[in-house]
Simulated scan of single mutants.
Amino acid sequence: MNKLLAASALAVTLLGTCSGVAMASSAATAQISSSTADRIVNTAESYIGKVKYVYGVRDPQRLIFDCSAFTQFVFAQNGIKLPWGSNAQAQYGKPVTSKANLQKGDLVMFSVSTPGHINHVGIYIGGGKMVHNHPGRGVEITDINSGFWQSRFIVGRHF
């Protein structure tokens, strides 16, 4: 009888744990509303000309960030927690493999050095453009369908 009670207690514990994981997973991939996407984009754009890029730095008081610290900062201001690091951020949300399917507020990941390796992230603002923190220029809006960025898109992440 004690073994049956212990097994039942274990099953309930495991069921509760699994349910918590499922809820956390679905919460992490919950879709953001268009108003939240607009707020994310507006927040990011409000930092144009105000943020300095330094690789490996996350200093919100002095507005010094690398690309992923900037996206983390912007999303946090809009109630969405993201980890630091473009590779880590690439694990959140739902993947968007085609630039044609990107939506405003999506994260966009790029390879800027090692082909196929994610090492830059920005925020899609619509119309084939992203806002991102760029080395040497700070926060700017860039066309992702021409020039340097055109062939470097890896994946988007939709929330």
Score class of each variant (00 low, 15 high):
N2S: 11
K3E: 13
K3T: 11
L4I: 12
A6S: 10
A6W: 05
A6Q: 11
A9N: 07
L10N: 07
A11D: 01
A11T: 14
V12N: 07
T13I: 13
T13A: 15
L14T: 06
C18G: 03
G20L: 09
V21H: 09
S26N: 12
A28P: 00
A28D: 13
A28I: 01
A30P: 00
A30V: 06
A30F: 01
S33V: 02
S34R: 12
T36G: 02
T36F: 01
T36C: 02
T36P: 00
D38Q: 12
D38C: 03
R39K: 15
N42L: 09
N42Q: 14
N42K: 14
A44V: 04
E45C: 12
S46T: 02
Y47V: 06
Y47P: 02
I48W: 00
G49N: 03
V51R: 05
K52S: 14
V54W: 02
Y55P: 00
V57D: 03
V57W: 02
D59I: 02
P60V: 09
P60W: 10
L63W: 01
I64R: 13
F65M: 07
D66T: 08
S68F: 10
A69R: 01
F70A: 10
F70W: 07
T71G: 10
A76L: 10
Q77E: 12
N78G: 07
I80M: 04
I80A: 07
K81M: 03
K81H: 09
L82K: 09
P83N: 11
W84V: 04
G85F: 06
S86P: 03
N87M: 12
N87P: 00
A88S: 12
A88F: 06
A90Q: 06
A90F: 05
Y92F: 14
K94R: 15
K94V: 13
V96R: 07
T97A: 14
S98N: 13
A100L: 06
A100W: 00
N101S: 15
N101R: 10
L102N: 07
Q103N: 10
G105R: 08
D106C: 07
L107E: 07
V108E: 09
V108W: 02
M109N: 13
M109T: 01
S111C: 05
V112F: 07
P115S: 10
G116R: 04
H117P: 00
I118T: 10
I118N: 11
G122H: 06
Y124H: 04
I125H: 09
G127Q: 08
K129R: 14
V131K: 05
H132A: 15
H134P: 00
H134W: 12
P135N: 12
G136P: 02
R137W: 00
G138H: 08
E140Y: 00
T142W: 04
D143N: 15
N145W: 03
F148E: 05
Q150N: 14
Q150M: 09
S151V: 00
R152Y: 03
R152E: 03
F153K: 05
F153D: 06
I154W: 04
G156P: 05
G156M: 09
R157V: 02
F159Q: 05
